[in-house]
Design a binder for these strands. Structure first.
Lengths: 238, 238
DNA sequence: CCGAGTTTGTTCTCCCGTTCACAAACTCCT
DNA sequence: AGGAGTTTGTGAACGGGAGAACAAACTCGG
């Protein structure tokens, strides 16, 4: 085992690996609940839906937590990954925009069980204030700064309509939030050092649609579209 | 301009490009609504939040739709991208699992305006049947096969709890659905040729948490965790 | 018509991530 | 103790995508 100082734990883990660590963590929790004490890279990889070589290389970035000829101790590895991600204790999170999606997010039990605690629900609309959602009452958006400061919030979730998203992000950043999960269908501009992850439902569907179209081959509708396209083309370039 | 036959339009567009086309499409819609008739790759790239060289390379995979020295015609390019993705006409979509998230998805207006039409909401729980959500009544999950067959549905959305997701996916595939958008926190096993895209809220937050932890540097809590880790380590490997 | 300015499409190079393949290290059985 | 069987961790080859840089192609003013 390599001794780890407080500095070398900060060495760079590839972004692609970081994105998969939560998947491994969830697979390990599943194995632990099923009563499995030990697992091979092959088993864990199958549970996580990835290649076993990739899994081993990913884990090797964290350290040498397996035993050759044996495999990985499920509980031990689970803890090490949780520690590396930083979800051994809960992160406070604020959700802004309590529409349909905001409701769903507030009620999502997976947050609490996976390292996050929703400390506040905010909405600009006074109609929604003091409404109780998932046991938390909705407060004015203007309370953002005080909540962030009091609770040490670093992560914010934007579930507002697209037009409001940039303004919300600006206020979040000014209040001290450094990481944003954005559900609004907009590209957010944020200063250097602020992380934004975007979840866009329509885009996911559109990517699927492209592949459906590809798999289906050329359909009649496509042919008509293509003809239209060529006509347009001529009009424009002629 | 290269002439396009019906076969060469099926040539391979890199996956990374496919994932960005919907972003460009949305940016173009925004520009069109703002009354812009023409835009340069630099302007469009800024609106989409990407590098202009990357944008030009992406668009070059579709064909030569710009004019050197001028830029791109907004409406024309918008149509070409929509056609390439396949969202010039609406795709029928079924949503399974009408809990909090299912409600939010059913009510999401962005689907309709971006090439998708929710044709059915399904839930296994009889308590929910005939409830009206977003103007569509919730039907039994067992109606899946007939709906898929009647409406020619190729895309399914899974918004059920994790335990039900695999069974739902299996039924979807058997019914003829070839593309699945999965919101349940599970790895789905599907046959070759079926596309699955996964949206996992906890995982997105955990990725953010990792970066917050990195940015914050080593905290006291981390040190305690690390000590714990080393103790565990000794226990296990001793 | 011609030259200066602008913008696209493409080539080239570099880097990150994936996968293969194997040595190192461990267990178990004889 | 020793050899056969397993499984991890990693070096090396490979493929794809990102970005820089430039030639080709267009506009516009004189």
């Amino acid at each position: 085992m390599t001794a780890r100082t407080s500095t070398d734990s900060a060495r760079d883990i590839p972004e692609a690996t970081v994105a998969r660590l939560p998947v491994y963590l969830r697979a390990l929790v599943g194995l632990a609940e099923a009563g499995t004490a030990t697992c091979s890279s092959e088993e864990l990889a199958a549970a996580a839906g990835v290649n076993s070589a990739k899994l081993r290389k990913d884990l090797s970035h964290l350290g040498s937590y397996g035993t050759r000829g044996v495999g990985y101790d499920v509980e031990y590895l689970r803890y090490q990954i949780a520690r590396e991600i930083g979800v051994t204790q809960d992160w406070p999170v604020v959700i802004v925009g309590i529409g349909n999606l905001g409701h769903a997010l507030a009620n999502y039990s997976g947050f609490r069980s996976r390292g996050f605690r929703v400390v506040a629900l905010l909405d600009a609309d006074p109609e929604r204030h003091d409404e109780l959602v998932a046991g938390i009452d909705v407060r004015p958006f203007d309370d953002l700064e005080s909540i962030v400061a009091d609770q040490g919030v670093a992560i914010g979730v934007i579930a507002t309509p697209a037009v409001a998203a940039q303004a919300v992000a600006d206020r979040m950043v000014a209040a001290g939030i450094t990481s944003i999960l954005n559900f609004a269908p907009t590209v957010l501009a944020v200063p250097e050092g602020v992380d934004v992850r975007k979840v866009d439902l329509s885009i996911e569907l559109q990517i699927l649609a492209y592949h459906v179209q590809r798999k289906a081959g050329t359909t009649l509708a496509d042919d008509i579209d293509r003809l239209d396209g060529q006509l347009d083309d001529e009009e424009v370039t002629a």
